[in-house]
């Protein structure tokens, strides 16, 4: 079978040093996105395990699979988790969730935990939409703008380009930076139009990395207009899959004149982490 260049790696992780049996409160967060699904389990507000995988056509099934995968090799079972929050596009389709919360609140809370309380602006570059969020030192949303009109400038668009360029998706960003001169951005960020434009450039004799540079450039520019609406403040953090693409991140930083905090974890789990943390807060409130 031909190589599928868009296929990013799914994986799971478990904290080696946390025992759930000692935990007072165990909460879960499931972020069913348009492209990927993450399940996070937290014990007393510390990440115990997580899984990150592609969302299938069946959302409830994807949610279940991700949670089972996160809990594999652990004797912790679903019924021992005190509170589970569903978030993301498919949040109403998490059958075992106690509550659903919009991904905007979850990403702000998650970024606050993962990047630290100094974060004021969060840009979530997801599979099928982008959100710019302002938050306070507790991770509470103070303003947001969401552009969910289409897949332009998002993870799904990158997958399409990986396929077109025959380059593994993880290497796209790096490759796009290998240009002597930054090309003009492609004029359309609509994935379908941008793809035909890119094919045109390739046939004209442009090299792969130049075409990718033009696309990453367009993507960064599109997101900048979104950020202008909420006025960007430091510290600035990017969550979601595109945060792993240096080609887009570097260009975005250049255009904004602001450095994004370098992540030390998987940027895709921010929403699910926020969901688990909000779940903890709700469970504690209900106990009182």
């Amino acid at each position: 079978m031909a190589q599928e260049f868009w296929r990013w790696k799914e994986y799971t992780w478990r904290a080696p040093d946390i025992s759930w049996t000692d935990g007072k409160i165990i909460t879960g967060g499931v972020d069913v996105g348009s492209v990927s699904t993450q399940a996070v389990v937290m014990v007393d507000g510390e990440i115990y395990a997580y899984a990150n995988m592609r969302t299938g056509s069946d959302s409830p099934d994807s949610a279940r699979k991700a949670m089972n995968w996160a809990l594999q090799d652990s004797d912790l079972t679903l019924d021992k988790i005190h509170y589970i929050v569903g978030t993301g596009y498919g949040r109403v389709n998490v059958p075992f969730a106690h509550k659903t919360i919009t991904e905007i609140a979850c990403h702000a809370r998650g970024a606050n935990y993962l990047y630290g309380p100094s974060v004021r602006t969060v840009l979530d570059m997801g599979g099928q939409d982008c959100k710019a969020i302002s938050c306070d030192e507790r991770g509470k949303v103070t303003a947001f703008v969401m552009n969910d009109k289409c897949a332009a400038g998002t993870g799904r668009g990158m997958e399409v380009f990986a396929d077109l360029m025959q380059v593994p998706i993880e290497q796209l960003g790096e490759l796009s930076l290998q240009v002597d001169k930054e090309p003009e951005p492609v004029s359309s960020t609509c994935v379908v139009f941008a793809k035909s434009e890119a094919v045109g450039l390739l046939r004209k004799g442009w090299r792969k990395n130049a075409v990718l540079a033009a696309y990453c450039n367009a993507m960064a520019h599109r997101v900048c207009t979104l950020l202008e609406r909420i006025s960007i403040q430091k510290d600035f953090a990017i969550t979601g899959g595109i945060a792993k693409n240096v080609g887009v991140v570097t260009r975005l930083e250049k255009e904004l004149g602001v450095q994004a905090i370098k992540p030390t974890f998987d940027t895709q789990i921010a929403g699910a982490v926020g969901a688990a943390l909000l779940g903890k807060a709700i469970a504690e409130q209900e106990k009182k």
Partner: peptide, 9 residues
């Protein structure tokens, strides 16, 4: 909190 719903074109 300010919620912005809309689009830019």
């Amino acid at each position: 909190m300010i919620a912005n719903f809309g689009y830019t074109d």
